[in-house]
Design a protein around this nucleic acid. Structure first.
Length: 464
RNA sequence: GUAGAUGUAGCUCAGUUGGUUAGAGCAUCGGUUUGUGGUACCGAGGGUCGAGGGUUCGAGCCCCUUCAUUUACCCCA
């Protein structure tokens, strides 16, 4: 049988993991630098925890888990199971009899669930980070996987826009360290609500936001066409046009919005929030990222209510969104805990990897398959045992070292091994070296070699 | 769900209007070299051409069915 893995999933070899961990480490270090503490939640949640949080489309993408041991059910229950199965073949339908668990779709909803369950022991505002895989039953394609990692940082239990500012600072620092040219787009759901209110189409707010969100992709005409198809009135579309055309500096955009939304309370609140962010950006000393107010940014997730963020690479041909986030005023409300506002962002590490690969942004140091500094080659059983003592000393000094564990006929095989693993030094210990307590040290890159003592070896390897 | 592309050696792919025993590069193993890798040369192993059916004297190639992979739409990290 030919082995395979489920579509949309991937294996990661040592070379890829080296680079992935490089990204993880930078993101994680910055999370901690800004005061976030780690948590983890289970891969699976009760299905009722997840459904209804991601919109109709999102619900369809949740990976459901078939209840275990259903074959052991009693006969009358089996009849019921068959009926339930037939119903779910007809329409989208969750039956607890068939499936009561599902794989997590993101990290934010499980986090909200965690907060509600641990409310008694929580210190607010609570800042947590979480780096775990999530699963989506999407059709895989470029940059879209069925299993991928999210790196989330959220603060819950604080209304302050300072949190948004700090998140921006953290994005700047992280992307700057990763060396990815990035454009951060932001918007505010209150603006979108305000627009819908002004257009007298509050019930169509989702259709409107989804349509203008596509501006980049399908152009102005495409957006207008979609709005028409969704049954938005011509007069409303006419009214909306100046906003679709909106360009220029962030301040210009704010001014236009101010006139447009003058009679909408919620719209004015949104502008106020945006102005607060823009006015205080200067003190953050943003060095790396570009920040742009983009009122066409909508983002699909249902639970956002205030600021929304999205980041894309600002170079290369592969530019999917690599970070998303925003403020949700009442995510815990559905789990029975009212009045907790939260805001957070999520780095999409798999796409960040793809972008960095395309732009060749990984530093030389992680562009190799192994971190081993030296391989000790051996000529036989006695030398091998002798080498064990040497690597032990090296490891005590914090030097990554390994011995070739087998006695082989040809020494060249051991050099080949070191070469393939890109190990920079090979130490050869034959009977001569063993008797004199030395090592023949070969620099694999230069091809030179010299005989050294263990102490000399340690000081040489410590320098690289 | 809709539409397109692709399935040939472990991997990446050639394979002409349908014609003898299906090829290359890389990888693997062995040798040139029993104390020296990455370069070079010589050799070896490895294939039910995704699966099933059909047309034909003859099918990797044409037709039908099916499965898988992949790209785009929708939506999204």
């Amino acid at each position: 049988m030919k082995p395979s893995i489920p579509r949309g999933t991937r294996d990661f070899g040592p070379a890829e993991m080296q680079k992935r961990q490089y990204i993880f480490n930078i993101v994680k270090t910055n999370f901690q630098l800004f005061g976030y503490a780690p948590i983890e939640t289970p891969s699976m949640e009760n299905i009722s925890t997840l459904t209804g949080k991601y919109g109709e489309e999102g619900d369809q993408l949740i990976f459901k888990i078939l209840n275990s041991r259903i074959h052991e059910s009693k006969d009358d229950k089996k009849e019921l199971l068959k009926k339930e199965f037939n119903s779910s073949l007809e329409k989208s339908y969750n039956s607890d009899l068939l499936t009561e668990k599902a794989l997590r779709y993101d990290l934010t909803v499980p986090f909200a669930r965690y907060v509600v369950m641990n409310n008694h022991a929580m210190t607010y505002p609570f800042k947590r980070y979480q780096i775990q895989p999530v699963w989506r039953a999407d059709k895989p394609q470029k940059g879209r996987y069925r299993e991928f990692y999210q790196c989330d940082a959220d603060v819950i239990g604080s209304n302050s826009l300072i949190n948004e500012l700090e998140l921006i600072a953290m994005m700047d620092k992280s992307f700057s360290e990763l060396n990815i040219p990035v454009i951060i787009k932001f918007n505010n759901r209150k603006i979108l609500s305000g627009i819908a209110e002004i257009l007298n189409a509050s019930d169509k707010i989702i259709d409107i936001t989804v349509a203008i969100d596509k501006l980049d992709k399908i152009g102005k005409d495409g957006v207008i066409k979609e709005l028409q198809e969704k049954g938005i009135l011509e007069t409303a579309i006419k009214q909306l046009e100046p906003l679709i055309d909106l360009s220029g500096s962030n301040d210009n955009k704010v001014n236009t919005l101010k006139t447009f939304l003058a009679t909408s309370e919620i719209g004015k609140k949104g502008i106020e929030e945006i102005e607060f962010l823009l006015n205080n950006l200067k003190t953050l000393e943003i060095k790396h990222i570009n920040i742009e107010l983009d009122i066409t940014l909508a983002r699909g997730l249902n639970y956002y209510t205030g600021t929304i963020f999205e980041a894309k690479a600002n170079a290369g041909t592969f530019t999917p969104s690599i970070l998303g986030g925003g403020r949700y005023d009442d995510l815990t409300g559905i789990f029975g805990l009212k009045g907790l506002s939260g805001v957070g962002i999520s780095f999409g590490i798999d796409r960040i990897y793809d972008v960095m690969e395309e732009l060749a942004l990984f530093p030389e140091s992680v562009n190799k398959v192994s971190t081993t500094k030296i391989l000790l080659a051996n000529f036989g059983e006695a030398e091998l045992i002798h080498c064990l003592g040497i690597v032990s000393k090296l490891r005590t000094e914090g030097i990554n070292a390994e011995v070739y564990p087998d006695v082989v006929k040809k020494i060249s095989k051991q050099f080949e091994y070191a070469d393939k693993k890109q190990i920079p030094y090979v130490g050869v210990v034959g009977s001569n070296e063993m008797n004199q307590n030395t090592i023949m040290l070969k620099n694999m890159e230069q091809g030179t070699q010299k005989e050294v003592t263990t102490d000399e070896l340690i000081s040489i390897l410590k320098e690289i």
